[in-house]
Amino acid sequence: MAESASVRSGAVGSPAAGGAPSRDGLRADPGASSVGVLRSAFGRPGAALAHAGVRPGSAVSAETVPVLPGLRDVVPGGALRAGSVVEVDGSASLGVALVAGVSRHGGVERQGGWCGVVGMPDFGVLAAAGMGAEPERLLLVDEPGERWPDVVAALVESVDLVLLRPPAAPAGAAVRRLSALVRKHGCVLALSGPYGRQWPGVQLRLRVAEAEWAGVGDGHGLLSGRLARVVAEGRGGGRSAWVWLPGPDGTVTAAAAARPALEVVG
């Protein structure tokens, strides 16, 4: 018992005296020291920004929902804020990439999270798997029907990210209810499609501003990837980066170097 307490005190930084059980070790257990453990856990570079933007006293909701490493330069803070509503526009790959990021890096202890995909019967499961998603942790609701807000509400309470293409214009009551549930459970609601654009209170909007496909020529070649400039707009201000979305091996990676702007020479 005393042995374990001294080990715990070691974890917060005060070195326990060489294996000897001490009063110091017992004292270091509650209160302040556990906050210290949390602090050090959130001291990672990715979490720092999100931590700063959260109301004081709610250290637990400062949790973030991770994105793929290739998108960390674009998304403010390097991760999605838990409990936020995000919109993806223009490119289905962006939604797939968000799902893949959570499925691969999210969840408890970052061992992989669960995602729900609602109202997207054309969701490219293979593309998600190529970006790193684990298909067995995806829940697909292809035809949510008229009661889609209930379906989303059920998912929001248990999964880490819900990718939703609303089948109809969202009613005000449904929006308020879902937004509140998302905030309460620390889930991320990612919206796409024409009705997704009408969702009020979106905190972050991701879109592909420019893109260029590589690999296919004039009757020869094989599609190998797309170099896309992904733009993030929202409260964190505008950011953009060139990303392989997807790359030749199906993954999402940041483009090696910023492409030099074309300029007239000679």
Partner: peptide
């Protein structure tokens, strides 16, 4: 997860929510 799935299946029927298998 099972609880959420149960609720959705109660709404949409058993085939309403699926897991993909490659």
């Amino acid at each position: 997860i099972a609880r959420a799935v149960d609720r959705i299946q109660a709404l949409l029927g058993h085939r309403g929510v699926t897991r993909p298998v490659v």
